[in-house]
Design a binder for these strands. Sequence first.
DNA 1: TGGTGTCATAGGTTGAGGCTATAACTGATC
DNA 2: GATCAGTTATAGCCTCAACCTATGACACCA
Lengths: 298, 298
Amino acid sequence: MPLGPSFPDLASLDLFVSVVELGSVSAAARVHGVAQPSASSRLKHLERQVGLQLLDRSPAGTTPTDAGIVFAGWAEQILRAAHELQAGLAAFRAEQHGRLRIAASFTIAEYLLPQWLQSFSQEHPADSVALEVANSAHVIERLRAGDADLGFIETPSQVPDLSERVVEHDQLVAVVAPGHPWATRTLVPVEALAATPLVTREAGSGTREALESALEARGLTAPPAVLELGSTSAVRSAVLLGNSPTVISRLAVADELAAGSLVEVSIEGLAIDRDLRAVWAPGHPLPPLATDLLASIG
Amino acid sequence: MPLGPSFPDLASLDLFVSVVELGSVSAAARVHGVAQPSASSRLKHLERQVGLQLLDRSPAGTTPTDAGIVFAGWAEQILRAAHELQAGLAAFRAEQHGRLRIAASFTIAEYLLPQWLQSFSQEHPADSVALEVANSAHVIERLRAGDADLGFIETPSQVPDLSERVVEHDQLVAVVAPGHPWATRTLVPVEALAATPLVTREAGSGTREALESALEARGLTAPPAVLELGSTSAVRSAVLLGNSPTVISRLAVADELAAGSLVEVSIEGLAIDRDLRAVWAPGHPLPPLATDLLASIG
DNA sequence: TGGTGTCATAGGTTGAGGCTATAACTGATC
DNA sequence: GATCAGTTATAGCCTCAACCTATGACACCA
């Protein structure tokens, strides 16, 4: 569902947060490279858009109202996500020209990497990171060929010839809409899952593969996909409307599960854990930048 | 630090995600209430801004490229935060006219409530929620006066005359910049903290109070504040630049800690836990909407 | 071989938002 | 107390970005 027609501008939110931080419209205007009257008018427009008084202005400076303080917190969440996108974008654009070349699988690139990249770029403003996204097999290829310094993959098996370190843990989980009959059951048998058509994300087919092999290990075949979609929010709408479950990386639906807009279903005897691992070629010694990145991931 | 000058528009990101979901520029244009050529040109502009080809167009429809898939995932994170802000905003505007009147403390309103409100408004599109933000004492007042149906507070002590339920757990943590000497120490004594000037957020003074009373319990007085700031990102910059620690709600810095842009410091013998609690007047029976909300919080 | 869908281009119009210049006010300093 | 450096708001002008309608080119299905 689209955003409201008069939703505030990213630039205005950014400007507003700067005003709260700096205590002055003029100072914020300077930081943003615009004239003070422009900033002033943008802020007035912002307040009219949201229908709240956000700032107390005085000839001595500007401070947020109570509503403004809370609003600034909410706006910061948006801006944080925006900065992460910006960091990811820079890495995408850098392609082969980066000082540190990363190849990552889809899931990792979407949900983990932006945060890493953003904090990395804050600590190493001079060094650019190049990002390439591909399935796990291709990531390994790139490392072997020396076209990437550091890879991130999600395959369950170990890779010979490569050094590795587990950096994160993921699970495939079954989720349904809150109104679905499964939502209230404590345990659903595997057979029921295998017999139910699924909505699938089907971007990196790594998740699909993992589901299939887990079911085959129990002598079952994976259920047919009733729909294959290209984005998480498409999956979410389809699950909500279509009454079908989906099996998807927990990372992709962590927020929905926390908010309760999707419900996790325990499948009896089916736990698909997978380690997300950093990998690199032991021949080429790991560049210092890569070591720094791995260290900051924790 | 401000966003880049040519950062994509929220509306364009929203449009792009819709295209990925629907597989068609025309369909996305319809959903967004704009003409197809406008959508087409906005998307082309978006691709020029980010410097990447995001879509494969054909007379049969439009599908995202690999980069487009990942980009859509990043964009969805921004849009999620935007929708949360929108839900919070609606609650702010509703003031006294909402069917469910909530009064919440600053920390809860900033970091927890938007997510709850968003999933709630999806499940109850007809019912509006009114939000008022105040310190914990004032929240209790509003409940007693019957001006609010449900309150959320963060005071450590129990409140007589009110029913309550713990909904979340919070901690005050000490954090420093990654380069700070404390960042590598395993344990810092309380006395060192009490002797060090702090940067503080100082929005809801609940956090300040909690720190003071915890220190006083050990016979210490709280350190002077070297700076009092109005927003989390202001605190973050001050901590990074000024080499001072801060003591702040873990909720407020959870993302920074995860990304490694701030580092948590364990203070010896100082653990300030506090329960975040929903409270309501037992006299007035809890409205069904409030029950639903509490249930979805989990 | 229409018909219905897709997307792109062209041309014209409008309005939002920017800038400069100025005014009104506060608080600190001399 | 007067001046100076700081703050924000208003007025007027201008430009360019973004929209819409109309049209064209191409693909797929019946």
